[in-house]
Amino acid sequence: MRIGTRVIGTALAGALLAVGGASQAMAQAKYSASTSLSNGRLSTSISQEDKTQPDGSAFWQLQDVYEKTGGGTITAQFGFNYHGYSYNRDWSDQSVNQTKDAWFWDLGFNDCQNVIGWMAVKGQNTFYNAPVTIC
């Protein structure tokens, strides 16, 4: 899925939510966030691509990563929320000591709105990172 230069017009309503369990989320750097979960670490990072949009502004890419350090096999889906819209990748299985990631390219982030990366786990919850912004 490519979002491209689509202008997304609804304000992002949510802030960080730790659904169904204790997690500690903290922004690590200007364009990344990482959250410790009971069986691993969820990270979201945004970086600028080498190409520009027709108006001269940057294209961005986002990566969600989950490093699974404990527990049983899960089926998870990565995604992010921006301006009230949600974008996601396909579901995949992940076992202990595996690292899985999902990439989103050609993103038209063009303001200081929060981007919130997340991981949904079948039969469990959706786990959110702290907000990240390109500003």
Rank of each mutant, 00 (worst) to 15 (best):
M1T: 14
M1F: 11
M1Y: 11
M1C: 11
R2W: 02
R2V: 10
I3P: 00
I3W: 09
V7S: 13
I8G: 09
T10I: 13
A11I: 15
L12I: 10
L12C: 15
L16W: 11
L17Y: 11
A18G: 15
A18S: 15
G20T: 07
G20D: 13
G20Q: 10
G20P: 03
S23G: 08
S23N: 13
S23Q: 14
Q28S: 05
K30A: 12
S36V: 09
S36C: 07
L37S: 06
G40E: 05
G40A: 09
T44S: 15
T44D: 10
T44P: 03
I46W: 05
S47W: 01
Q48F: 06
K51V: 15
P54F: 14
D55Q: 07
S57P: 02
A58T: 02
A58L: 06
Q61V: 09
L62Y: 06
V65G: 04
V65N: 14
Y66P: 04
E67F: 02
G70T: 07
G70Q: 11
G72F: 07
T75K: 14
A76S: 07
G79S: 03
G79M: 09
G79F: 06
F80K: 04
Y82L: 00
H83I: 14
G84A: 10
S86C: 11
N88T: 06
N88V: 08
N88W: 02
R89E: 01
R89F: 00
R89G: 07
D90N: 05
W91C: 01
W91M: 05
W91F: 14
D93T: 12
Q94M: 09
Q94N: 03
S95F: 00
Q98V: 04
Q98K: 03
K100I: 06
K100V: 03
F104E: 01
G108T: 08
G108M: 03
N110D: 13
C112Q: 05
C112R: 05
Q113W: 05
V115T: 08
V121F: 02
V121K: 07
K122C: 04
K122I: 07
Q124S: 12
N125M: 05
P131Y: 00
P131K: 00
V132C: 08
